[in-house]
Design a protein around this nucleic acid. Structure first.
Lengths: 338, 338
DNA sequence: CACCGTCACTTACACGTGTAAGTAAAGTGT
DNA sequence: ACACTTTACTTACACGTGTAAGTGACGGTG
């Protein structure tokens, strides 16, 4: 009952051959097993606490039952944490398991995937083009924020467009943008800025005034000062994050100003804290759980399609219908700050 | 260069036997290999892009090079995300890999560990006693927040004691505590409350007045009202989290009160936002990165000790000295709110 | 009674790796 | 010149699993 329990042990305990055990536990269709021995095997397996070795099973099948989620090198934000959560739930409905690995900045994703042989891959962080190409050539089903999301909503999920749209509808024409200047966030910042600039151009607004700040009152205050002074002041600002929106509110307060009168502020992510700010923060809510479910679905879909093939029929169909909902993954949450 | 590259392919390309490539790549000490063939093998492996199959290697060794970190069912907070980050860094210095798996509420940790055969285990979430016992009997090196941290600092890392100590030093004798009422946080809440109650008793304060609230302005305002009204009002409050501290500040504001005059408020976690609150939040900083490093070290240590044994000598010694620092993992950050 | 199909299994092999044991040639000591 | 160590490999096996192919026994049909 302790150390290692193999199917051989189960077979001996049940008084049958090892193959029989395998047939019983995997419910192979082509084979017929009498009900009595089937029960005997099941009982023996349960009693011994048998858990098949993923290593051996993976070696045999050429593919494991793990879905690998690659995380960005920077620490996870709340949104990504919930994506992980939801994806994990979804993946388990198919009898698979989700594991996450933080990708070091040095790369090495390809080797990991080669050696782990996961059933599917979920990318939540951008990769070098050649690394991505190498991954694709590995024939592992792959869902990527970088790529798959390119078409439907743009790689920033439409956050930038929603922010700009709301501010423009309120009559603002000169916008500011506050983003982190940390290297780890470079790609996401670039994507967001592109989306915001595109939206401004489409709506006929002036090009946005970008400020790269640290998450400190001083930095935020300086940015606010640069925006609000001068002949043609910025009247509204998009924050990269609710965190940065908080920083802007704090910066305003340190000048004796406040939102939305002196500067409208809109955040992104809808943190639990957003409603507690003074004034309550208008923000863009990211339905992270839904995104996670969607990602998992995208990654697993090819495995289901190949159900007819002999290679990957170990993927269970789920109990309840999962059906990725067509709800937009981001929505505006209007409060008082913009 | 595409699909699967096995050591057999490398051997053929280098014109040697498969065993030779294994000896070369694993740098076995007992064997002697001529420098010329060694280079030939290395070149062939690099050219073909060979990555050894973890499955086969794990099967052979009986133990994989993965360190498994089990995450709680609830979404990760910032602190835990940074623990993951740091642990991942530390583990990779030893040539191992860290993967994280979100533990479903239903359990099933034992089966996962049995089948994955990880080199070590890091628990960041409590398990049922019997499940923990089963894990321990698996002989996998295990570092657990639940257990290992019991002695040095108590399972709440000393956060509660630090909070109470600071408030007591400022002359407060009647304290309130604000904690979440979400079921997912039940264990952590219980641990924190125990620590706070213990600290209050030790310092001769009155037993704390506990309020279980949701992260909403209304709930927080009600809690503040119950504390501040009455014949013997609470004058200071410990929040479970900086999030809950923000909620308390918001609750105070909605009554026209403010910290620390009407109610001193102390948080925990030192979010980036903490310094941006009005007033800036006094809080307990958790050195999450250091904790992560420490955990990883704790988990890996048994593998290093067994270096003399033949079982697990594939763990590399790190390039730089890692040396878990004896710095306390939590420190007080005094700002204005308490 | 011979024949055939179905049932309920068992035997045998492959997956890719690490490593103990074997082997042939070259070097070394007396 | 012969034994004996050292060098530089190769051959062979085991890890635990999934599954194709094989094997009796049994039941039914001609």
């Amino acid at each position: 009952m302790h150390g290692k329990v193999t199917s051989h042990d189960v077979a001996r305990a049940a008084g049958v051959s090892r193959a029989t055990v395998s047939y019983v536990l995997n419910g192979r269709s082509g084979q017929s097993i009498s009900e009595t021995t089937r029960q005997r095997v099941l009982a023996a397996a349960a009693k011994l606490g048998y858990a098949p070795s993923t290593a051996a099973r993976t070696l045999r099948r050429g593919q494991s039952d793990l879905v690998l989620m690659l995380l960005p090198p920077e620490p996870l934000g709340r949104a990504l944490a919930m994506v992980l959560d939801a994806a994990s739930d979804q993946v388990e409905r198919y009898g698979l398991r989700l594991i996450a690995h933080r990708l070091p900045a040095s790369g090495g994703a390809v080797d990991l995937v080669r050696s782990l042989a996961p059933a599917a891959l979920i990318l939540t962080t951008p990769l070098a083009a050649e690394e991505l190409a190498a991954l694709r050539s590995l024939e592992v089903p792959l869902a990527s924020l970088q790529q798959e999301m390119d078409d439907p909503l743009g790689p920033d999920l439409g956050i930038g467009a929603l922010q700009v749209g709301h501010l423009a509808a309120a009559g603002h024409t000169r916008l500011g943008v506050a983003v982190p200047d940390l290297p780890g966030y470079a790609w996401r910042v670039q994507v967001r800025l592109a989306a915001i600039e595109h939206a401004c151009a489409r709506l006929g607004l002036h090009p946005p005034a970008v400020e790269r700040i640290r998450l400190e009152a001083g930095d935020a205050a300086a940015a606010v000062a640069r925006w609000t002074q001068g002949p043609e002041p910025v009247t509204a600002a998009c924050a990269f994050d609710d965190d940065y929106a908080f920083a802007l509110l704090s910066g305003l307060a340190s000048h004796g100003l406040s939102a939305p009168a002196d500067l409208a502020v809109i955040g992104a992510e809808d943190l639990p804290l957003a409603g507690l700010a003074v004034p309550p923060l208008t923000t863009v809510s990211v339905h992270a759980r839904m995104l996670g479910t969607l990602f998992a679905q995208l990654a697993i879909a090819p495995l289901l399609g190949a159900d007819a093939d002999s290679s990957t029929e170990h993927v269970r169909t789920p109990d309840a219908a999962p059906a990725a909902q067509p709800v937009p993954p981001v929505t505006l949450v209007q409060r008082a700050s913009a």
